[in-house]
Design a protein around this nucleic acid. Sequence first.
DNA 1: AGCATTATCGAAACCGATTTCGATTTTTCA
DNA 2: TGAAAAATCGAAATCGGTTTCGATAATGCT
Lengths: 339, 339
Amino acid sequence: MQLNIKMIAEMAGVSVSTVSKIMNNYSDVSEKTKQRVLEIIEQTGYLPSNSAKTLATKKSSLIGVIFAGELNVDFTHPFFVEVLNSFKKQMGVLGYDLIFFSNEKFISGGDYFSRCLHFHVDGCVIISGQKMENAIQELDMSSIPCIGVDLELKGKKSGYVMSDNFKISSKVVEHFYLLGYRELGFIGSTADSNISNKREEGYIKAIEGFGMTVNEKWFVHGDDFFEPSGYAAMKQLLQAGNLPKAIFAASDLLALGAIRALKEHGLRIPEDVAIIGCDDIEACKYTSPKLTTIRQNKERLGVLAAHMLFDLINNQSEGGSFVVEPALVVRESCGSQNR
Amino acid sequence: MQLNIKMIAEMAGVSVSTVSKIMNNYSDVSEKTKQRVLEIIEQTGYLPSNSAKTLATKKSSLIGVIFAGELNVDFTHPFFVEVLNSFKKQMGVLGYDLIFFSNEKFISGGDYFSRCLHFHVDGCVIISGQKMENAIQELDMSSIPCIGVDLELKGKKSGYVMSDNFKISSKVVEHFYLLGYRELGFIGSTADSNISNKREEGYIKAIEGFGMTVNEKWFVHGDDFFEPSGYAAMKQLLQAGNLPKAIFAASDLLALGAIRALKEHGLRIPEDVAIIGCDDIEACKYTSPKLTTIRQNKERLGVLAAHMLFDLINNQSEGGSFVVEPALVVRESCGSQNR
DNA sequence: AGCATTATCGAAACCGATTTCGATTTTTCA
DNA sequence: TGAAAAATCGAAATCGGTTTCGATAATGCT
């Protein structure tokens, strides 16, 4: 038999309600009995059942984590997983644990809202670089607090965090420009990816802003943000002939895929083609050439997401968004080798 | 007000118990009423409250995930996260969701057993390459089904999966040997790491098995399995002078760190020093030189862990262990460049 | 038809907590 | 000292399910 509140009450010679009050910091219990009960709790190592508590209070201290979209986003995604890691830590100090919904469990694959109710999550975080789906929209519009990571949630109890994608692109273009590059290409994810689209838009705007011309032949797209997509996209560019001098890839993995294709063709980076990636994942440091990229502050994204969600849960916020500053990280793939 | 079983019962004109029976495949309910109720459930999208169900049955359909140990194992660990990803998928098709315990939430930091009871998890998976701690031991010895990943759990309701670490080492040594290397070094993690120790032991045995001599000067250790540790360990070797001709690193990241140090010293890989890593993480393909390594079948480790745990939960297994075969992946860091 | 089975259903106890509200005890203060 | 106020505590309802067991209805059989 599991240790429960009733047993604690009996051991302490008080009622169940008194024990409960002590555990929830009610004021109408004397210091003396409080100490006595606390001691027993300490000795026995009693922890209240989360299900019983959740049933009674409708609060579970659980945050749902949803990997949304069809872009293969899961634990193996090096960018999101770092944001998630930071988010988890921060949520932990705020007193919450994380629950991951299996997409496989429900054939419907999508009714996130029901599942949130099912587990009585206090809030949830939705991770996705994709355009809005219906199932997410339903959640967004519900009364369950939600935070999107790279996903623009607009509901009353929603918010989101993302990097300033326009600034990401303009930093890239500026760097290219200052190094003398004028023929700029782009490798993005699918048109389904909101983030990729934003970066592309910003890229085009920035190119025009610097008085250069955009050549659409040099804009290609993969199926997601992963390496093989970058490889395939670059292949496409190579087959068409007439390469740009510099390429901005919407993720580091896309950039690495592009580099692999380039190398296979006997091309040198950055001498023949300069490459800038995006995200600044760990692997950037180990590749050859080391990848020049735009760093997204993943730790900060995670921390902000956690705090926003916490405030939303506690009605101390009306939602909204946080946009974090990106930073250029100069390494070796773009002609200007620092240190 | 939340949609609950009572409301469904009223809508269908049956009792609460009947609805419950239908949802749990009891046989004592007629096909006719079953269909009627099912239809209402379908229409309303009713999902039973997990907390209520858990409270009543003591089964939560939740699997606890524990990152144990002090070796900085979390979502950013490229090997474990892939195992976890596969585990999560498989657990999903078996009908379970995952809950991640925050280490930050409880200052005690360790009472995993209580937390498992607190959430009524049906089982848990413990991820760690470290020696056994007390808090884990308690869980291991409890009646909660547990699976260790790279952690040898011995309890009656426990099991574990890991790669055949001796074979990993012997494959490395064999490869070195056949390529003519005779002066072999090793970079491991701390002495706290059971896995690292196993690989080291196996390495030594294999070296002796091939009639070579082991030189302890060439055996160094970092603080964990990450890149900076490999860098630091290699620095140590470099300062001592008199390098081995080939080095086996107990993880790919350690290998990459070592390579970075080597490059800084103007040494070439594999011409001056050959390196073999371990795990076969994604990054191996993007580095320069591409890393020759021993592949651990992460997907299979995850699937096996899931099935073992499922069997343990359903009393269809007495525990035990699964050891999966490693495979040599020849790339560029060890003198024999395939394709 | 009449009785024994079997099929179908519901009442009620229970799981382990929270919370309201009333009862009792203690304290305060004139 | 005695009445009013405040402090302390517990009984019981509640949350949303599951499960046992008895009641009733339907069916089988001679």
